Computed example of a mutant assay.
Amino acid sequence: MENLPPAGYARRILLAVTGLSPQIVTETLYALAVDAKPAFVPTEIHLITTAEGAERARLALLSDKLGWFHRLRHDYALPEITFDAHHIHILHDAAGQPLADIRSPADNLACADFITEKVRTFTAAPDTALHVSIAGGRKTMGFFLGYALSLFGRAQDRLSHVLVSQPFESSWSFFYPTPYEHIIETADKRLADARDARLSLAEIPFVSLRHGLPTALLDGSAGFEAAVDAARATLGPARLELDLPARTVTAAGQTFRLPPAELALLAVFARRARENEPALSAPHKEVPDAAWAERYLHELHAIVGPMGDSASAEHALRDGMDGSYFSSRLSKLRRTLKRELGPAAGPYLIEDGGGRPHRYRLALAPDAVRMVGPGRLASLR
């Protein structure tokens, strides 16, 4: 689906934020489905708004008396579009209560998390194309929605703002240009015919950071700040912290645990990078290497502690470490790092130098590595 235009996707979603002006929904729908060439006709519409905004949207767009969403579909013979009260998502505060407005820093953060999760969810399925409108709502709502699309958006997703010609802008009575005469009162108390209105959709380019986010962040629930921190860590210089007693790794803005066997191998190369020591050759296949066993077991003992279980590794390496043991640990380490960090894993993978014979190293600067060990802290230099 990589070369498919947005209109060619089976599931096409229009997502908008609104405040007290639900007209944004019908204006954007008209611009996309009627006026645009080629047309983008959503299969479903979702709205993010406050408690009062939700009630206004329900009454103005979906009620039997006004129902401007249904009128628009009828006037322009648009196909079925799924949009009902269940598709109007009300913002909640940190306590789970519906937000009447966004006033405090806590409200802003709750709003950001809510919008981020909606965008992450809608962009998770590969058969979807998401069109995001930031024309309505408070400025912070539009900012968070646009930022969330930058974090999670894909090639088929779009971001836009709809513009309405004068004197129809800000008029409560205007919802879209009708194909027939429809006289309304404008914001400055004049009369005008809605069919004379002109709408233009300003598409806003955005930089997608999705491919730099860890896979775990894309697959699971992530708040706004966590997603932003992960993007910053990916775009910023690589830094690695190993906490050996806690068995944790911190890299690219993520902290996760590693099994002692893989962590010990990573610690061997992290320590050499911190001390600016040269790359190492791997042990030869079926030829035990005592020096390799010693450096590996040194890190393993630091991880499991004096009472920890290292007997199995000590027995396997009693004559030294051979190439098969090394390759097995290295493969598992690489898989785990890629799973936890996604595309951001690159700087933290053990390199083999590319040529033969392979010489392995962790290509980080000494001051980019921090190691916490038993009873001491190796600080960044």
Rank of each mutant, 00 (worst) to 15 (best):
A51M: 06
A291L: 09
L341R: 06
Y147M: 11
L218N: 03
L265H: 03
L29E: 09
S208T: 08
A365H: 08
T43V: 14
A344C: 08
V17K: 10
P167Y: 05
A39P: 03
P22K: 02
A365M: 08
P79M: 10
V304W: 12
A135E: 00
A148W: 06
T28R: 13
A85S: 15
E27L: 11
L217R: 07
H87G: 13
A302Y: 07
Q156S: 02
L244Q: 13
S170N: 14
L364A: 06
H298D: 13
F122H: 09
P245E: 12
R334Y: 04
H211R: 14
D352I: 08
S133G: 02
V25T: 15
M307F: 14
P283E: 12
L258F: 04
T116E: 03
P38K: 09
Y30D: 04
E52D: 14
A378L: 13
W172K: 10
R103F: 05
F175S: 06
M1V: 07
D188E: 11
P288R: 08
V119N: 04
A251I: 10
L235S: 11
F83W: 13
S379Q: 12
A125F: 04
A155P: 01
Y9R: 04
Y176T: 00
M141P: 02
E277C: 08
T82F: 14
L61D: 00
R335G: 13
Y76Q: 05
P283V: 14
R138A: 07
D75C: 07
D93N: 08
D113K: 00
K338G: 09
R210Y: 03
Q23W: 02
